[in-house]
Measured scan of single mutants.
Amino acid sequence: AQASVVANQLIPINTYLTLVMMRSEVVTPVGIPAEDIPRLVSMQVNRAVPLGTTLMPDMVKGYA
């Protein structure tokens, strides 16, 4: 199964992502692939992302 990117903490709206904020986990539904974690660093979330939430492409500015 493919691992997705999951929030490792509460990520406030407009926060620039860093490695410590994200982890990879096999979840349903599938979100942003874990292999894209390096690409996500320094990208901004466009909403608050609670701890344990799967990151979806529409949550990250400029990802989709």
Rank of each mutant, 00 (worst) to 15 (best):
A1V: 12
P50T: 11
A48L: 10
L10W: 06
R23D: 06
T18D: 11
A64L: 14
A48R: 14
P38S: 05
G31Y: 02
N8W: 05
S4D: 00
I37Q: 05
V30H: 12
I32P: 00
P29M: 04
P38W: 07
V41M: 06
L17N: 00
G52W: 06
E25N: 09
V5K: 01
L51G: 06
Y63P: 05
R39K: 13
A1E: 09
L51R: 08
G31A: 04
L51T: 10
V27G: 04
A64T: 12
Y63V: 06
V6S: 03
L10Q: 15
V26T: 11
I32C: 03
I11E: 00
L40S: 00
T28M: 15
Q9H: 05
V41E: 05
M59Y: 10
S42V: 04
Y63G: 04
P57L: 10
E35S: 09
V26H: 08
G31C: 03
P57M: 09
T28P: 02
R39Q: 12
P50D: 11
A48Q: 10
S24M: 08
I11Y: 01
V60W: 02
D36P: 00
V30Q: 14
D36S: 14
R39T: 13
T15M: 10
G52R: 06
V49R: 04
Q2N: 11
A3R: 11
V60K: 01
V5Y: 01
V5S: 05
I11S: 02
T53G: 14
P38T: 08
T53S: 12
S42E: 09
A64S: 10
P57S: 11
M21Q: 12
N46R: 08
T54A: 05
V26I: 09
R47S: 13
T18H: 15
K61R: 15
G62H: 13
S42F: 06
V6L: 10
V45A: 05
G62F: 10
D36E: 06
P57R: 13
A48I: 14
G62V: 05
L40P: 00
V27H: 04
R47M: 07
T18R: 05
M22L: 07
M22P: 00
V49L: 13
V30N: 12
P50W: 06
L19H: 13
V49K: 00
Y16L: 09
A34N: 07
L10N: 13
P38F: 11
Y16S: 11
A1C: 04
L19R: 08
Y63F: 10
D36V: 09
S42R: 06
V20T: 15
G52H: 08
A64Q: 15
Y63D: 06
L19M: 15
V49F: 02
G62I: 04
S24P: 12
A1Q: 15
Q9D: 11
D58I: 08
L55K: 00
A48N: 10
T28E: 09
A1S: 09
G31S: 03
L19W: 11
V30E: 09
V6T: 09
P33S: 08
P50G: 07
G31K: 00
T18W: 03
E25R: 08
V49W: 02
R23C: 03
S42W: 04
L55T: 00
S24N: 09
V41N: 05
V6W: 02
Q9N: 09
P12H: 08
A7C: 03
V30F: 08
R23M: 07
P33H: 09
A7P: 02
A34M: 04
R39E: 12
N46I: 12
I13V: 15
V6N: 02
G52I: 02
M22R: 00
A34G: 11
T15W: 05
A7S: 15
M59V: 12
M56H: 09
P33A: 12
L40C: 03
I37P: 00
I37E: 03
M56C: 03
G31I: 02
I37R: 09
T53E: 12
I32T: 02
M21A: 06
I32H: 01
M56F: 11
M22H: 00
T54P: 07
L17F: 03
V60F: 05
S42G: 14
S42I: 03
V60C: 03
V5D: 01
M43H: 10
Q2I: 09
G62S: 12
T15H: 07
V5M: 02
R39D: 05
V27K: 09
L10K: 06
L17M: 12
E35M: 06
S24A: 08
Y63A: 04
I11D: 00
Q2A: 13
V45Q: 00
P33N: 15
G62W: 08
A3K: 14
D36L: 08
V5H: 01
Q2T: 11
A34C: 04
P33M: 09
S42K: 12
M22S: 00
M22Y: 02
M21D: 08
S4G: 07
I13E: 15
R23S: 06
S24Y: 04
K61Q: 15
T18G: 06
V49C: 03
G31W: 02
A64I: 11
V45C: 03
R23W: 04
L55C: 02
G62M: 13
V20G: 15
V5Q: 01
A7F: 01
L17K: 00
I13F: 08
V20F: 15
I13A: 15
S24K: 07
A3P: 15
M59R: 03
D58M: 06
P50Y: 06
M43C: 03
M21I: 03
S4Y: 03
P38V: 07
Y16H: 10
P57G: 11
P29F: 03
A64P: 14
P57T: 04
A3L: 13
M59Q: 07
L10T: 12
S42P: 02
L40Y: 02
A48S: 15
V60S: 01
S42M: 12
Y16T: 14
V49M: 04
V45T: 15
V6E: 02
M59H: 12
D58Q: 13
V49P: 01
R39H: 11
E35Y: 11
I37C: 02
L51W: 15
N14A: 06
V30G: 09
A48Y: 12
V5E: 02
L17H: 00
T54L: 05
Q9K: 12
I37Y: 03
V60N: 01
A7Y: 01
L51C: 03
A34D: 13
G52E: 06
L19V: 13
V27Q: 07
V41A: 10
Q44D: 02
I13L: 12
Y16G: 13
Q2S: 14
L17E: 00
Y63Q: 05
A7W: 02
V5P: 02
T53D: 12
N46W: 06
A64E: 10
V49D: 01
I32S: 01
V27D: 02
P33D: 06
R47L: 13
G52K: 07
V45Y: 01
V60I: 14
P50F: 07
G31M: 02
V60H: 01
M56Q: 11
D36W: 14
